[in-house]
């Protein structure tokens, strides 16, 4: 931990609040790890039709969105899909 981190260190109360907010968003969405795995596999299938993707590096999770305007943070499915390259389509 650097010196700047030391001064910026969050209070434990705030840490607790942030951890809980994140945790409860995914718990309220009621998504089991099995369902998440199924979603992940389906995403891979669909995207793979059009792009070459790094399936190992693919990461999906449910978080709260930090969208502006709204008071309540809505649960959001976040997917990080690294692209290796565009797939050559033989359309023409």
């Amino acid at each position: 931990m650097g010196l700047m981190d030391f001064f910026k260190k969050k209070n434990s109360g705030d840490v607790a609040k942030d951890r809980l907010k994140l945790l409860l968003v995914s718990e309220r969405a009621d998504c089991s790890p099995e369902v998440m795995e199924m979603i992940k596999n389906d995403i891979i299938q669909v995207i793979s039709k059009y792009m070459e993707i790094d399936t190992e590096g693919l990461d999906i999770q449910i978080t709260k969105s930090l969208e502006d305007g709204k008071q309540e943070a809505a649960p959001t499915l976040y997917a990080n899909i690294p692209i290796k390259g565009r797939k050559r389509t033989d359309s023409k």
């Binding site: 209070n11 434990s12 109360g13 705030d14 607790a16 609040k17 809980l20 907010k21 409860l24």
Partner: peptide
């Protein structure tokens, strides 16, 4: 700052 406040709990 070492305990969540009533407002924090309400918000969560």
């Amino acid at each position: 700052g070492d305990m969540m406040s009533m407002e924090d709990v309400q918000e969560i």
